[in-house]
Design a protein around this nucleic acid. Sequence first.
DNA 1: GTCTATACTCTGATAGAC
DNA 2: GTCTATCAGAGTATAGAC
Lengths: 194, 194
Amino acid sequence: MARRGSYAKGVARREEILESALDVIGRRGYQNASLKQIAEVVGVTPAALLHYFGSKEELFTAVLRKRDEHDSLDPVVQGLDDARAGLVQVIRHNTEVPGLVELFSRLAVDAADPAHPAHDYFLERSAQLRESVVEGFTRDPDRAGLLDAETTARVVQAVADGLQLQWMIDPSVDMAGIVEKLIDALFPPSSPAS
Amino acid sequence: MARRGSYAKGVARREEILESALDVIGRRGYQNASLKQIAEVVGVTPAALLHYFGSKEELFTAVLRKRDEHDSLDPVVQGLDDARAGLVQVIRHNTEVPGLVELFSRLAVDAADPAHPAHDYFLERSAQLRESVVEGFTRDPDRAGLLDAETTARVVQAVADGLQLQWMIDPSVDMAGIVEKLIDALFPPSSPAS
DNA sequence: GTCTATACTCTGATAGAC
DNA sequence: GTCTATCAGAGTATAGAC
């Protein structure tokens, strides 16, 4: 089962390319980035990218997966306040990498085609995210939500994705603030005074 | 101010192309439609399309505007129930023209660039839609929403757009049902019993 | 196995003939 | 006013150098 040295090198190079692409796209933007542009920033030739990723769309799918690796920050979600804070933090972070937000949204649309390499990625991610929302937002028995858990999850996801579309067109939109207000409304504090 | 005959003919041709494109995209889907594909379905040459619309993106922007003309169905919104019903109706209708949903979402992403021909379209449409939501959903003085009007509008829009992304990936998502539940939760019936 | 050079096809766009 | 001919650039496929 021993891997050859050259194989390990290839894996490392792949990671290297992915990190570079992630950085470049996040900072400089996605903006119809061509393979050539990405390649020369990463310091390779377009064909090299294809060698590792097969196609442009698979490369972008891999970039998105890499992003999730970096951002997966829900080691322990204790309850509603934790879940809310975690969500808001992710949204705030996204504000600083507009290129990735654009890439994500773009691929979300393209992946409507079941043959698109990112199709399964979005299916999995969506299910996973919903599960995580259901768990995080229903842990407090005191604070029942106004909506059932499944609907809450779909709404939260939809609002997050939809606000990104609005924000891309008009960056003055306060995504985090709106999400906070919505969650507060959907999970009213248990009123001990009543 | 009399128009020349050829001018009028050009305008008619433009409308004709737009209606064809609208029909074709709605039924057969958008799916990375190339100018050539659209042209041959419409029964013209690609260059003719560019002659009338200048660029592919302007053509698509015009298609979206044409769609709005057809769908603008809020002649009289009396109150909350009307507004809710109208919104749900639009969402249900969208279910039958997946290609247009895809085109809309696709352009919403591309239009993030201020230089994109659809940039202003989305800005205007968004403002208009929010205004309409604010009006429709705050007409009943009895039934105050859990959120302020502006936030309600942004949330409703975000949920509608975000659910479309989910639905494109997984058509089993019940967009209309989720929106109904959310609105009901956000506008609890005035409880006359309390 | 890793990568470059090259070529091929198709795209949106342009110039100019009719 | 409309379309044919052509263009530069995109993504991709292949051959082969290392």
